[in-house]
Amino acid sequence: MLKFKLFYDKDAEEDWLKEMSLNGWAFKKFFLGVYTFEPCEPGEYNYQIDLLDNWNGNKDDYARFMEDMGVEVISQWWRWVYLRKKAADGPFEMYTDAQSKIAHYTKIMKFFQIALVLEIVCFIIELMAVIKTGDVFFGILTGVIGIIALALLKIVWKCKWKIDQLKREENV
């Protein structure tokens, strides 16, 4: 089964994959917003999504390490990896203490901050094109880029909120 969905919040995405698994659909692959599912026992797998440190470097080492833990790397999208573990093998949470959670969300925040800056640059270029030409097509494009930029801003803000929350809990 194929499903098209766009997520910019990986926590919501994890919840959705878990829900699909509970309904008997195991996530297999992600490509350009298209999720591939195959039938499974309801609730057979739990899912987590992680962000690798760099674009190519440590992937094999990472995948083998996770494999030893009973965790399977099932799909990769740029630096993002989709992980699953059989529910029968126990609970599955990648990051279990405040320090590593803070590091994880900081990494995600930086990732989206870079995307946000690029998006704002594109927005300004498009906006200038609109002002100069008055073209409707450029106008629509500018609107779309603006919406994406706002979505990115929201996720950066959400990461920052989570990091602050974790720091408060830990008194660091």
Binding site: Q48, D50, Y62, F65, M66, D68, M69, G70, V71, P91, E93, M94, Y95, T96, D97, S100, A103, H104
Partner: peptide, 28 residues
């Protein structure tokens, strides 16, 4: 000790109170 063994040993030592997530262990 290997990765999975480390998680197991820590869980045993703490009576199941501290169970490290794979991502936490990998980073550490």
């Amino acid at each position: 000790n290997h990765g999975y063994g480390i998680i197991q040993d820590i869980s045993d030592m703490t009576g199941g109170r501290v169970v490290l997530g794979p991502g936490t262990l990998y980073g550490a």
